[in-house]
Design a binder for these strands. Structure first.
Lengths: 142, 142
DNA sequence: TTTTATTGTAACCAAAGTCGTTACAATAGA
DNA sequence: TCTATTGTAACGACTTTGGTTACAATAAAA
C-alpha cells in the first residue's frame, strides 16, 4: 500500500508554479502536460490546493498561480491540503475485543507508538519547503 | 489512505506472545479472540511472521511461540515482515512526460525528498522494540 | 493405529479507494 | 457575443483489504 500520488503530483504542480515567471498563469492543460496525466486529475488537485489557500485559480482565459511564499510553504502543508492521509497513518483494528483487558491495553500502547512514528514522518515533511525543492530541481547536483 | 492494519495486528499478536509464559503456545483461535477478528486473518499474518523467522508455528496440538528476543525485535522488523509497504511509501506518477525536462528533474528531486521522509518514519520504528511495547502495556502510566 | 485439534491455503465476496475518461454547465476575458 | 477555461458529476477498470467458508495436511495424544 502506498500513499496516493495525489501528493507527489501536487508538489510537482506547485514546483512548476513556483518556477514560473511571476504573474503568469498556467492552465490545467499545460500542468497536465508536464505530469503526463489528464487535465481533470490536475483540476481536482488544484481544487484542494485552492481550498487550502495555496493557489488561486481563475476561470475563462484562466489558469493558476501560487498564493504563498515558496520559502514558507512546506511539504506538510501540501500533504495536509490534498488530504492523502486522513487522521492516523497506521490503521489499527477497529473493534478490539472489549472482554480482553490485555487486548485493550495493547491497542492503547500501540496508538502512542504509531503516533510517534507518524510524527517523525510529518516533522521531516515540515522541514522541507517548496523553495528547497525548486532549488534542488534547478541544481540537480546539490 | 492508511497503512494496512496487518501491521498493528502483527504487533498485537507478537505482544501477546512475548507476554506469554515461556514455552506455552497460543493458537490462532485464541489470538483472534484478543484482536477480535477471524482466525484465518491471524494465520495469514502468522505465515508472514514465520517466513521472516520471527515466530515458530506448530500444527496439530499446535500454536505459535516467539522465536526472537523481544529486546532486539524492532517494529521495523515487523513492518518489513508483513510487507505492508512494498518499496516506496509515497507513490509518484509512473509515466512522467519524457519530453518535459523540467518534469523529469522534478520527479528526481521529489524522489530524494520523499525517501528522506520515509527514512524518518522507519528510523522511529527501528528505535522501538517489542520489549518496550510489552513494558508500556504492563505499566500504562509510563 | 485411530482420533482429534490445529494449521495452511485456496476461493470467493463486499467495500473502499485510485486514476483516467467523457460530458457539460458555469465563468470571465477579448 | 464568442471562446477558452474551470468546476464537477458520472462512470469504469483496477487494486487492496478484511472477512468468510471449505478442506486437505499435519502431528500430537489416546
Amino acid at each position: 500500500m502506498q500513499i496516493s500520488s495525489r501528493f507527489s503530483v501536487a508538489v510537482h504542480v506547485l514546483t512548476l508554479l513556483a518556477d514560473n515567471p511571476a504573474g503568469e498563469l498556467l492552465t490545467s492543460d499545460r500542468l497536465a502536460g508536464s505530469v503526463n496525466t489528464n487535465p481533470v486529475v490536475i483540476r481536482r488537485i488544484l481544487g484542494q490546493l485552492k481550498k487550502a489557500g495555496l493557489v488561486e485559480v481563475r476561470a475563462a482565459a484562466g489558469g493558476t498561480y501560487l498564493r504563498r511564499d515558496p520559502a514558507t510553504l512546506t511539504l506538510l502543508d501540501v500533504y495536509r491540503a490534498v488530504d492523502v492521509v486522513e487522521g492516523a497513518l497506521f490503521s489499527v483494528h477497529e473493534h478490539p475485543n472489549p472482554h480482553c483487558a490485555m487486548g485493550r491495553h495493547i491497542q492503547a500502547a500501540l496508538d502512542g507508538t504509531l503516533a510517534r512514528a507518524q510524527a517523525a514522518l510529518e516533522r521531516e515533511l515540515a522541514a522541507t519547503t517548496l523553495a528547497q525543492v525548486v532549488a534542488s530541481v534547478r541544481e540537480p547536483v546539490g
